[in-house]
Amino acid sequence: MKPSGEEERGQLRAHKNTHVKLILTSLSAMAAETSTFPIDLTKTRLQLDSSSRSTTNAFRVASEIVREQGPLGLYKGLSPAILRHLLYTPIRIVAYENLRNAVVSADGGGGGGSLSLSAKALAGGFSGVIAQVVASPADLVKVRMQADGRLVSQGLQPRYSGPLDALNKIVCTEGFGGLWKGVFPNVQRAFLVNMGELACYDHAKRFVIQNQMANDNIYAHTLASIMSGLSATTLSCPADVVKTRMMNQAAGKEGKIIYNSSYDCLVKTVRIEGLRALWKGFFPTWARLGPWQFVFWVSYEKLRQIAGLSSF
């Protein structure tokens, strides 16, 4: 049956709204990524450190980067990080909202709040998996370029001169499939991060509003972003450590690879460095996720309001 004029207009509005949301998420993600990237770089360096030195901490690592490379050294790898979020964030945010609304509509519910936390967690995790598979090559380049800073600090030549050079060399030396190295721990991390982040933000914001702790404003968005950042960090940090180490390793001169799989990386990390090593970089990760989510969610919610869209 041919849809009515009202149904066609509704479909057009839905498509238009989706395009607007993709643009708004991209803008908000760029702002959040740029403002918190130095913390992400520090976290990556900590996770790549396989030593058991108790003196290694986030402040010391950040200080060494500034001393050896200058303040701009804290932004090594920013361009592929932004490219990643131009792919990753719009897909996961819009996919989650569409999944949530579709399930609510199918159940005859009246809003996202009618979904259980477990249902939101599954929707968030699934959305993150889809987005991460698409964005994994950009994530790989970001991690490799961040790790290059350690080579520079040791007086060695960096492997890559820029994002395009990194992409070209990875394809030439490791094959096209090499762009998805670490994709499995990456996907695992994305599932856990988005399960904690999206579901917790959505649920926490509605909890705050429904219990009249705050209206649907910056206070509710801030509280929800802090809570979601903590839960996402706790769930995802072990997978993040494995992902970072898997993505950074490349075949040596003799083709030797340190970790054969993400499981092998997990086992060796725990056996050699102890269980606590799986949460290396926890505080800089949380310190980044908190501000990142604050900047992202507050700006995204505000941009939605300006664009005439309903609250997330």
Rank of each mutant, 00 (worst) to 15 (best):
T89V: 14
K76G: 04
R67Q: 10
G70I: 00
K76S: 08
L86M: 04
I82T: 15
L87I: 10
Y75N: 00
A95C: 15
S63Y: 05
P71T: 00
L99P: 04
I91L: 14
N98Q: 12
Y96V: 02
Y88V: 11
Y75M: 01
G77E: 06
R92V: 09
L86F: 04
E68T: 09
G77W: 03
L78E: 00
L83I: 11
H85A: 08
R67N: 09
E97T: 15
I93K: 03
E97R: 15
K76M: 04
L83M: 11
L86Y: 08
P80R: 02
L83T: 07
G73Q: 02
R84K: 11
A95W: 12
L74C: 03
L87R: 06
L99M: 14
L86H: 08
N98I: 12
L78G: 00
L87H: 05
R84E: 12
G77Q: 11
I93E: 02
G77K: 10
L74M: 02
N101G: 07
Y88M: 13
V66L: 10
G73S: 01
L86T: 02
R67E: 12
L99W: 08
S79A: 14
L78A: 03
L86W: 09
L86I: 04
G77S: 09
L83G: 14
Q69T: 06
Y75R: 00
A95N: 14
I65F: 05
R67M: 14
G73C: 00
I65D: 00
L72W: 15
E97H: 15
L99G: 11
G77L: 04
I82D: 10
L72D: 07
A62Q: 01
V66H: 06
P80F: 00
L86Q: 07
I91Y: 06
P80E: 07
L99V: 13
I65C: 00
V66P: 03
E68L: 06
R92D: 09
L99A: 14
L78W: 02
V66T: 04
I65E: 00
P90S: 06
I93D: 02
H85S: 08
L78Q: 01
P80Y: 01
I65S: 01
L78S: 01
R92G: 09
K76N: 04
